[in-house]
């Protein structure tokens, strides 16, 4: 390609100018901007900015936004996770719809359980889904109530209390926050 600028000198000048502008923008957008947002966030919304952490007796037990593993019968169980709820390495199974492993996994679960929902047997996208569907919670409800000797109506009340809403009634789906629900159950 013929050089649009005359002479070697202009050529070098343009390169130096590019580097200079690139570096200035990098500092402005890569350092000043995130730091300003961090400062505002830390001052005005420290709870959210630091991860919506739940602290009990001075210890962090998790985040209300990040799912964790529950497989004991006295708890509402969380969804399967391809990364075993590793919150320092999120990820999914990436099984296609006719992947043998997926089919096997679902069929073996079907054998032991009469009624299932899709989110009960299928892994989430992040591997950290904090929610289960309301239908899923309703299927687990009798078991949890039995294990804890609680009336089902009481547990149902708690499920409703710990359901995060959708957006203005139409966008997204309401989901039961498993960690918050199990915490409430434990605190009874």
């Amino acid at each position: 390609m013929c050089l649009p600028l005359q002479g070697k000198e202009n050529f070098m000048k343009e390169i130096i100018k590019s580097i200079k502008i690139y570096l200035i923008f990098t500092v402005l957008l890569g350092l000043v901007y995130p730091l300003i947002i961090a400062a505002i966030a830390q001052i005005t919304m420290p709870y959210q900015a630091n991860g919506s952490l739940i602290i009990k007796d001075g210890r962090v037990i998790g985040s209300e936004l990040i799912g964790q593993k529950f497989d004991k019968p006295e708890y509402f169980n969380s969804r399967p996770s391809a990364v075993n709820y590793n919150a320092a390495g999120s990820g999914a199974s990436n099984y296609g719809p006719m992947n043998e492993k997926l089919i096997e996994q679902v069929n073996s679960y079907k054998k032991n359980n009469k009624k299932i929902t899709a989110d009960m047997v299928m892994a989430s996208a992040s591997g950290l889904d904090p929610h289960i569907s309301i239908e899923n919670a309703m299927l687990q409800l009798p078991r949890v109530a039995r294990q804890r000797n609680l009336p089902e109506s009481k547990v149902k009340e708690l499920v409703n209390e710990n359901t995060d809403p959708d957006f203005v009634g139409i966008w997204g789906k309401a989901g039961v926050n498993v960690l918050k629900l199990n915490l409430t159950l434990d605190s009874l």
Partner: peptide, 9 residues
Amino acid sequence: NMEGKEVRF
């Protein structure tokens, strides 16, 4: 088909 999807979405 909820494989690879989040409940909230």
